[in-house]
């Protein structure tokens, strides 16, 4: 029987209110940690500032997605109605001046492409979906989706130290501090 090899993921500390975890996050930020995160059942207002995170750049991708949708719709309509297969229906001519009749589909595809870009870009930025994460090895962690708040400092952080980080989290008021490991 061999002992399974384990890799340390990081230290997990539990907090019971948004206020506690908010002030703890400010101190972790000021201590200069970089690989860490706050886990909460709902988005905590102002947490981005407390963690020192910049605003998400997601909107730029969504704008690009919308522009691609608009272009796709215009080309789809113009090429099929005017270039490839010009048809005069209901006395409406087949030329660029009928562009007003193309607007509804252009609008709809802009929204459609932008919405799907928002969904998929968001998932990529959140590094989801994934089937497993070391944090799920912690039994305590499942309370993050109920009423507890967690702060996890990861071992890959250059400032991480097995003793000091644990003491630091305890000093911030974190409860049930545990070392989260993952089987290799």
């Amino acid at each position: 029987m061999s002992t399974p090899l384990k890799r340390v993921h990081g230290y997990l500390a539990e907090f019971s209110s948004t206020k506690d975890v908010y002030h703890a996050a400010e101190q972790v930020r000021d201590a200069g940690y970089s690989s860490w995160d706050v886990h909460s059942p709902f988005p905590v207002h102002g947490m981005d500032d407390a963690m020192g995170l910049p605003r998400s750049i997601l909107p730029r991708f969504v704008l690009i997605g919308g522009i691609i949708g608009l272009t796709t719709a215009f080309l789809l309509e113009y090429l099929t109605q005017v270039v490839i297969y010009p048809t005069v229906v209901q006395a409406k001519p087949a030329n660029i001046y009928t562009i007003a009749a193309f607007f509804p589909v252009m609008f709809e595809l802009t929204i459609l492409f932008a919405a799907f870009t928002a969904l998929f870009t968001c998932l990529i930025m959140m590094k989801l979906p994934r089937l497993h994460h070391p944090l799920f090895n912690s039994r305590n962690f499942s309370k993050f989706s109920d009423d507890k708040f967690f702060l996890c400092i990861e071992a890959r952080d250059p400032k991480f130290s097995p003793e000091k980080t644990k003491a630091f989290l305890a000093g911030l008021g974190g409860a049930n501090i545990e070392l989260v490991e993952d089987e290799l």
Binding site: H39, S40, P43, D48, L53, S145
Partner: peptide
Amino acid sequence: GWRGGNRQWR
């Protein structure tokens, strides 16, 4: 695999 991290929430 949602973990409610603020790096996800943002």
